[in-house]
Design a protein around this nucleic acid. Structure first.
Lengths: 144, 144
DNA sequence: CAATAAATGAGAATAAGTCTCATTTATAAC
DNA sequence: GTTATAAATGAGACTTATTCTCATTTATTG
C-alpha cells in the first residue's frame, strides 16, 4: 500500500487513486497479467480509459513492460529497479506466462553475442527479450 | 511463381489465387512485414477477410510466424524449412525489423540453458524467440 | 465435365484501444 | 487550511484491427 505511493513519488508522478489501484493490482501479481484481466480486476474502480492512460504513464516512467501472449493479447508486467533481469516461459496449454531467470553464465554469453551483433550490424542494442514456448507438464491445475 | 504453388501442394493445401498472391508477396520480402503493409500491397487483389484467412491458413501449416513490432502492430514472416534459424533486431528509430543469425556457439549455449530450464520448471520447451531492441546507427536511409 | 466441398468477397459485427470534453482532484502558493 | 491552477479522471463516442456471415465462385475428384 505504501509501496505504490512510493513508486509514484520516486518517479515524479502525481499520486492519484487510479494510479494506486492499478499499481496495487500489478504488485499483487507475481507473473505477467493480461490487460483484459486487469480491466476485469479493476472494473467499477477505474475507468477503462483511465486504466489505459495509467498503463501508458507507467510505461513512460519505464516501470512497465508490455508484450503479447500466445493469443496475441496484450500482457503487462511491472518491472521495478529492484526486480532482477528475467525472461518468460509461455505455456501453450494453459496460457500461463512464467518469469524465468537464466543462469548468469548464459546471460554473459548473450551479452558477448549481442556485442558481436552490434558491430556486425552497426546497431546500438539497448535491450533484449528471450521468450520460451512450450508446455508445462504438471506445473499448474489448468494443464492436464 | 512456381515456388508458391509448390509450398501449397507440399502442405496439402488447395492452390488458389489469393493464396498464391499472398505467398508471393511474402516471398518478395527478405525481412518481416506488417500485416498492414501486406494489406496495402494486395489491395484490389485479395479481399481483406481473405488475406486474414490465408494468413491463418499459413500459420496452421506452420510456415508463417507472427509477432508484433515496437508499435504493437502485427508483423508476419514466412518461415520455410529451408530458412535458417534466426532472431530479430528491432530499430526504435525507423521501425525496421532485421533478421539476425546468432553464432552457432551461442545457440548451443542457449540450447543447454533451455534444457536446464525444462528440468527446473518441468516444462517441455518447443521453441524460443530472441528479440533485440535498439537503433541502427547508419544502416538505413530512414534513420538520421 | 459435373458434383461437391472448400475458398472467396463484400461488408457487417466485434473488440481493443484512443480520444473528447465536462468534471474532479492533486499540488503548490499563500 | 484555503484557494488557484494544472493535471487527471470518467463516461462514452470514436477508431481501427480482426473476425464473422453468407451468398457466390472456384478447386478438386471421380
Amino acid at each position: 500500500m505504501q509501496d505504490s505511493k512510493k513508486i509514484l513519488s520516486d518517479n515524479n508522478v502525481s499520486i492519484t487513486n487510479p494510479r494506486i489501484l492499478v499499481l496495487e493490482a500489478l504488485l499483487g501479481n507475481k507473473n505477467p497479467i493480461t490487460v483484459d484481466e486487469l480491466l476485469t480486476k479493476l472494473k467499477n474502480q477505474v475507468a477503462k480509459s483511465t486504466l489505459y492512460r495509467v498503463l501508458s504513464d507507467l510505461k513512460k516512467i519505464n516501470i512497465l513492460q508490455e508484450f503479447t501472449n500466445l493469443d496475441n493479447q496484450s500482457v503487462v508486467e511491472l518491472l521495478l529497479d529492484t526486480d532482477s533481469h528475467h525472461h518468460h516461459l509461455f505455456c501453450s496449454d494453459c496460457g500461463e506466462i512464467i518469469d524465468v531467470e537464466m543462469a548468469n553464465e548464459f546471460e554473459e554469453k548473450l551479452s558477448k553475442e549481442i556485442k558481436r551483433i552490434e558491430k556486425k550490424f552497426n546497431f546500438i542494442i539497448e535491450d533484449h527479450r528471450l521468450e520460451l514456448f512450450g508446455k508445462c507438464t504438471d506445473l499448474c491445475e489448468n494443464c492436464s
